[in-house]
């Protein structure tokens, strides 16, 4: 009996030792895994901190560049404006022509700086975007008002056609940015329309979506460039930037804004569907509500 008990005890002890050994092995394995996970976490934290630091440096750089470029331009534009206004003596025709060239190119430089900084901020997620309820009709009215002087100057008729008539549609988004999209599209359409033509802005809504169409009857964009025009510094013709005064960034900015609103933007030739008239139609589709964890975020700009 004693021998049996002894053997049983020894067997149990051996089993316990084996279990203990296995538990120790498992503990060591778990400890190693934990250590590895901690190291990975630390590496990720470090990478995140570095990324945040870089973002902050980039933001500071963009802010500084903006300030450093705008400050001398303020003196240049101010001096040109004073001379052009004739406050320091009569400006003859030749001098006025030279001042006009200097003024136009100063404006072009200002637009270019604004567009580059805008795009840079949007790309880095630092562009401050509001998230508000927007009234479609108000945005369209403001955009058309902004562009009416340019349309008159180019002798182009601006037509607005809400579909269905007068729908008081609202949507969630950044009103300033969506208006910027409308203004950019209308500005392009006017610039590339021959005098006497019209530019039409259609708008439409259904349950969840909002649509814009800006139609021009200019010479149209070649089919192989319809997507490329949304790239940076892309012009249909090389001389367009100089002749039309664009920066080549307007449509890239439109695409960035629409994309941040989880929408889409594209262009089509008017004659693509067999229509007789040349020209281009730019389409914008936006969801009327933004997801809860939207990318449209209000960050404090530098």
């Amino acid at each position: 009996m004693h021998v049996f008990l002894l053997i049983t005890t020894l067997a149990l002890a051996a089993a316990c030792l084996a279990l203990l050994a296995r538990a120790q092995t498992t503990t060591r394995r778990l400890q190693a895994a934990l250590q590895q996970a901690q190291q990975q976490l630390q590496a990720k934290d470090k990478a995140l901190a570095e990324r945040m630091h870089l973002d902050s440096l980039k933001d500071e750089f963009v802010s500084t560049v903006s300030h450093e470029l705008r400050t001398p331009l303020t003196s240049i534009r101010g001096a040109l404006g004073l001379l052009s206004a004739g406050v320091h003596g009569h400006v003859d025709e030749k001098a006025a022509s030279l001042l006009r060239i200097a003024n136009n190119n100063t404006d072009r430089l200002v637009r270019l700086i604004n567009d580059i900084l805008d795009l840079e901020r949007m790309d880095s997620g630092q562009a401050s975007m509001q998230h508000r309820t927007c009234v479609l009709r108000d945005l369209i009215a403001q955009a058309v008002e902004t562009m009416s002087a340019m349309a008159q100057e180019h002798k182009v008729l601006l037509e607005v056609r809400p579909e269905p008539a007068g729908a008081p549609a609202t949507f969630e988004g950044d009103p300033d940015r969506i208006q910027q999209v409308l203004v950019n599209l209308l500005s392009n359409a006017i610039k590339f329309s021959p005098a006497g033509e019209k530019v039409v802005l259609f708008s439409n809504t259904d349950g969840d979506s909002l649509f814009f169409r800006v139609v021009d009857f200019g010479k149209g964009i070649p089919a192989d460039k319809l997507d490329a025009v949304f790239g940076r510094f892309t012009q249909v013709e090389e001389a367009d930037a100089r002749q039309k005064g664009g920066t080549g960034l307007g449509l890239a900015i439109c695409r960035a804004i629409v994309s941040q609103h989880h929408g889409s933007i594209w262009a089509k030739r008017n004659d693509a569907d067999g229509a007789a008239r040349a020209g281009t139609t730019f389409y914008v589709h936006l969801p009327r509500s933004q997801p809860a964890e939207s990318n449209i975020k209000a960050t404090s700009a530098s």
Binding site: T71, G78, H88
Partner: peptide
């Protein structure tokens, strides 16, 4: 703090 901007702004407000 910018001399040029002070001058341009001053001229603008005085002359115009």
């Amino acid at each position: 703090d910018e001399d040029d901007i002070r001058e341009v702004a001053a001229l603008s407000l005085e002359s115009i």
